[in-house]
Every structure is written in structure tokens, then in C-alpha cells.
Design a protein around this nucleic acid. Structure first.
Lengths: 262, 262
DNA sequence: AAGTGGTCTAGACCACCTA
DNA sequence: AGGTGGTCTAGACCACTTG
């Protein structure tokens, strides 16, 4: 409630063509960018900004709404509007499916979380048989029914990724892959034990805004896109043996790939 | 103005806890998802929805604002609110930097656009020397000054990507790379001619909402994230010879990568 | 109890587009 | 000219958080 909390903000330019609520958003954005408001810090309240700029409350709220859409701030009912902190980031390296990693006991997700000191969890585990969607069927080579494995990954209690694997029934039915816990090394190691020696993976990446479902599942803040990754695993005979559809909170990931120049 | 244009929409549930503007957004979203409103089609006007639901205009506008944030619709001043059409997508394959492509005459962007029948353009070309930012310097191995090449790529008149390349001065100064048009095969081919045989590239990918600058440069619609890609090129001696920082309209791209399983 | 953001109303004037 | 969205006001009541 300090009268100085708006001290870093300037005045409006009444001669400008730019809408008032955009000018206010511009000033707040600049203040955030310049570090005048730090991560996690509370911005001036709506009432203070109404007072400072001499505008109506809806105008101030429109400004906040812009910044929220840009993912710069988030609001907490009854508490205030805060500069959104950057969450810890999960880096996915291009060697993450190397056989040497599979040959260790734990799954890639758990191993990696340990090395960065985060607490990993997997929940919403679901394994069942379903009819293949046209897209999955096309990727797996005209398969009718598939084994589906869904699971959600969390780091330090925060959901970061929701993944769904699809495997042809003739490969996966009545194998450890159809168990909720497929055992050490994960399903890729089981596939190799079943004689499907893995050759390579193909990953397709898109980014988009989340659906309301995805907002709920990943507990996404406003202004956070998702990375939608579809990976297909091929064995040495050129057969697609798994499709994995993954939706990731974009603010929690950096993907990295190595490309040959030859 | 047809009284039937809201025919696909239901009634509000006054007993629901869900805010009215969210209920309206839900109904519109569902209608769009089910194809009751097609791509590019106009939604009922604000006035019609005010009439249909018996709410105030601001409430209807809040609903539209949700859908806009999700990238589902876009508004045109004086015309209406429309279902946002999905633009044509540019697919980037993981072999896009293979030497065989460099050895052809044209740049990758132009070749590829031709094959999908789009009209490619490059503008805002800018070449100059600058001090390296800390991040670029770290990636290039403690380089102080760099040659900077900026350019914007367009497909069929639509900006889709804005790229900035950084090269160490000792490599690029007084070479064709410092020319606005570096010649056939692009700067990667020039680098090889200068004795820097390329070994591999590393790409780092993030997704996030665009800054206001990026919205302007790429003419992004509301609710469209950007893919931020940073590529580093390494020569056979392990030296980083170029860093390319690229911001792409996420709705215009699918990236694809091949990962080894070994 | 006081302060905060969340929702909603009922107006107003403007700029833009189509006809 | 009439319809459309863009901006803005001045209220109101509510739900949530904090002291």
C-alpha cells in the first residue's frame, strides 16, 4: 500500500495513438524487463494503478491481461499480481536414447532428475488396449489395435509432461510392456529383449497453445505454450515399433539435437 | 444478422460455478472443434451473442478473449471474429543441412519452398559487425566481435521466421560471407570453401510466447507462440564457426529430427 | 476487517469495413 | 449508413487471502 510502489512507472502520453491499456502494459513490461520488479515480486495492485494513472479499473485489468498472455505475470486471487518466476528447466539431450542409457537400470526420466537434484514422480499411469487412431495407425504401418501406455511426469511436484505410447499388439501383448511397471530400463529395453533391436527414432516437434484439458493436466499458467512431440521408434528391420505422443509444458523444457553436416 | 446464426449454441447453466464468460467460451470452442464453425468462418457477432445469452457485451468480449488466447479465433476490426485458419506448415527435416543440399546452387529455404509450391522471399537483410553478447560469445568460444547477418523469411508474403547468424570475425571478415548475398549454397558452403569443413550442428529448441517486437516482425496472430531455435555449427576440428538464432512462428513449422538408438 | 483479484452490468464514443 | 469490433468509464457484488 506504499505510495512509492508505483514509483518506477511513468505517466501516460495522452497524445499517443496507442491505447491507454497498452501504454500501461508497456510500462509494466519495461519495468519487469529492466528488473525493477524481480521474479516473484508483487506488482502494484489494481487499485494503486487506477490511482496512479487516473483510469478505470477495467483499463488496468486489460493491461494485466496482456502481460498474462505474454506469460510475464500471473495473478493470485486475493493476493496480487506477480512477476512469473522462470521455472527450472529440463534439458533433453540428443543422446538421451543411447543404448548405454537403456542398459542402466532406471528409466531415463528418473536418472536425469537425480542428476539435477529434482524429485521425480510418475503418476496417472494407465495401460490398456485401444483402437489405433488414423494418425497412430499411419505411423505404425496400418495397425488396427494398439497397446496404450499413458503417464504423467512431475518434477518437484510440478507436472511437466504428459506422454502416451502406442505399440502394436502383436509386439506388446502379454509381455512386460503390458505391465504398469515394465521393469528396469523401460519399454525400450524390453523391446530389445523381445528381439526388436532399436535402430533410430524420429521426432516431430510442434509448439502451440494448450487446450483447456492440457492446462488442467499440466497445471499450466496463462501464457505458457506446450511443445507437442511425436516420436516414432524404428527397429533395425525398419519397422515402426512404438509411437510416443508427448505434450510438455514449454517453460520447463529445452530440447537439444545434434545434426550431421554430411 | 440472421437469428439462426447462434443456433448451434446452447443455454447457460445458472447453477454452475463456472463463470458465464467461460461457459460461453466453452460452447464456442466446442462448436469450433466439432466443425459447426469452419476455418475462416465468421462467428456470431458480439451483439448477437449479447442477445442470445442475455449478458452484457463485456462478458461476451471476455469469452472471445479466451478463445483468442488459445489461438482458436482472430478478430478483424469492423468485420467480425473468425475461426483462425491453419496456415500451411513448413517441415524442417533433420537432413536439411546435409552436404548434398549445400552442393546444390540455391539456399535451402528457396529450394524447399519451390518443392511445396510456395513463393519464398527474404528481406530485412542486414550485415554488420557487432560486439558479441555473452551468450553468443560463450557458444563461439570467447569471441569478442562477430559478423552479424540478420534476415527475415517469408512464404507467400507471410513472415514465418527471423534469423540472426553470428560468425567470428577472423573467419568471416573480408569474405563473401560478409556480403549481403553470399552466393550459391549459402554461408555454410562458403565456410567449407574457406577451409572450415563442417562436422555437425547442435540445435537448442525452446517455445514461448512472443515479445511485442516479435509479434510485429512476424505479424503473429494472438495465441501463436514462437519456436526459438539456436543452432551452433562445428567444424571438423571441433571449433564453433557459426551461431544462428532463429525465431519462428510456431503455427508455420513442424521440426523433425532423427535420433540414433545406439 | 481490509485489501486483493474475479466477475458482471449498462452504458458511451470511436475506428474500421461493407454496401 | 449501419454493423462490426476497440476502448473506456463508473459503478456493483463476490471470493479469496492476510492480519
Amino acid at each position: 500500500m506504499s505510495p512509492l510502489s508505483t514509483g518506477v512507472l511513468g505517466a501516460l502520453d495522452p497524445t499517443s495513438d496507442r491505447a491507454v491499456f497498452r501504454q500501461i502494459a508497456d510500462q509494466l513490461r519495461e519495468a519487469i524487463d529492466k528488473g525493477r520488479f524481480r521474479e516473484g515480486e508483487k506488482l502494484p495492485s489494481e487499485a494503486e494503478l487506477v490511482e496512479h494513472y487516473g483510469v478505470s479499473r477495467m483499463t488496468v485489468r486489460n493491461s494485466f491481461s496482456i502481460l498474462q498472455g505474454e506469460g510475464l505475470v500471473h495473478s493470485e486471487h486475493g493476493r496480487g499480481v506477480f512477476v512469473r518466476p522462470r521455472p527450472p528447466v529440463r534439458r533433453l539431450a540428443s543422446d538421451r536414447f543411447a543404448r548405454r542409457h537403456r542398459e542402466q537400470g532406471k528409466s531415463a526420466f528418473l536418472v536425469e532428475a537425480d542428476t539435477v537434484g529434482s524429485h521425480p514422480e510418475v503418476d496417472s499411469l494407465q495401460v490398456k488396449e485401444e483402437r489405433a487412431t488414423p494418425d497412430v495407425s499411419a505411423r505404425l504401418g496400418s495397425v488396427r489395435r494398439v497397446l496404450v501406455r499413458r503417464r504423467r511426469y512431475l518434477l518437484d511436484g510440478r507436472p511437466v509432461e504428459f506422454a502416451t505410447s502406442y505399440l502394436p499388439l502383436d509386439i506388446a501383448r502379454d509381455t512386460p510392456i503390458a505391465q504398469p511397471n515394465p521393469g528396469p530400463g523401460g519399454i525400450y529395453r524390453r523391446l530389445e529383449e523381445l528381439g526388436h533391436r532399436l535402430d533410430h527414432f524420429e521426432e516431430e516437434i510442434k509448439a502451440r497453445m494448450p487446450s483447456p484439458d492440457e492446462v488442467a493436466t499440466l497445471r499450466l499458467a496463462a501464457g505458457v505454450p506446450v511443445i507437442h512431440l511425436i516420436r516414432t521408434a524404428y527397429d533395425t528391420e525398419g519397422r515402426a515399433v512404438e509411437v510416443c505422443d508427448t505434450v510438455m509444458a514449454a517453460d520447463a523444457y529445452v530440447l537439444s539435437y545434434r545434426l550431421p553436416a554430411t
